[in-house]
């Protein structure tokens, strides 16, 4: 069998939706860190978003199924912990799709995980664009999200937390 090009592989990977937020692909999410051929075996490096996220196992399964359906039989998935996943790796396309879906995308401010950076952050309402919003909880329906409420249009919404 002819080895598909890496461009083709990335195009296939970009068709796989995130299991919990299906408007964004695994490539948009930035969890696939590397793809390379070693002989006739495809090696992919996959990094978890949150260490306890149940979607991690589903993501690996989805990758295997989708690539197998496209004729890739020899596939090795390697877990990569470092550098740790950051929301900076979410693509522009991914950010736009999150916003359209009603999830406020994370800011790209380069400051993550530092205690101070979490405080006093302005989160824009993904529906009306208002900057006056309030946090209901640091945690939401999935590990990667927090719950917010817009004080202008009054709609509650999810915010994709910055890490």
């Amino acid at each position: 069998m002819e080895r598909p090009t890496l461009d083709q592989i990335w195009a296939w990977l970009d068709q796989i939706p995130d299991p919990e937020i299906p408007v964004i692909s695994l490539v948009d999410l930035g969890v696939i860190r590397d793809a390379l051929w070693k002989g006739d075996t495809l090696h992919l490096k996959v990094t978890p978003t949150y260490s306890g996220c149940p979607a991690t196992a589903v993501i690996n399964l989805d990758i295997q199924q989708h690539l197998r359906a496209n004729g890739i039989d020899k596939l090795v998935l390697e877990r990569q912990l470092s550098p740790a996943w950051t929301t900076d790796w979410i693509s522009e396309k991914g950010r736009r799709n999150l916003q359209k879906f009603g999830i406020a995308p994370p800011p790209k401010d380069g400051e993550h995980g530092s205690y101070g950076a979490l405080l006093g952050r302005v989160v824009e309402c993904p529906r009306c664009g208002s900057k006056t919003t309030e946090r209901i909880s640091q945690f939401g329906s999935t590990p990667c999200k927090a719950s917010y409420r817009c004080t202008e249009c009054l709609e509650p919404f999810d915010y994709f937390k910055c890490i």
């Binding site: 978890p48 949150y50 260490s51 912990l81 470092s82 550098p83 740790a84 996943w85 950051t86 993550h112 995980g113 530092s114 205690y115 979490l118 405080l119 640091q138 945690f139 590990p143 937390k161 890490i163």
Partner: peptide
């Protein structure tokens, strides 16, 4: 050890805040 700590500390920043 350092890789695991790097990963975990991002999540723990939210725990401390809350």
């Amino acid at each position: 050890v350092s890789e695991i700590a790097e990963k975990a500390s991002k999540e723990v920043a939210y725990h401390v805040e809350r």
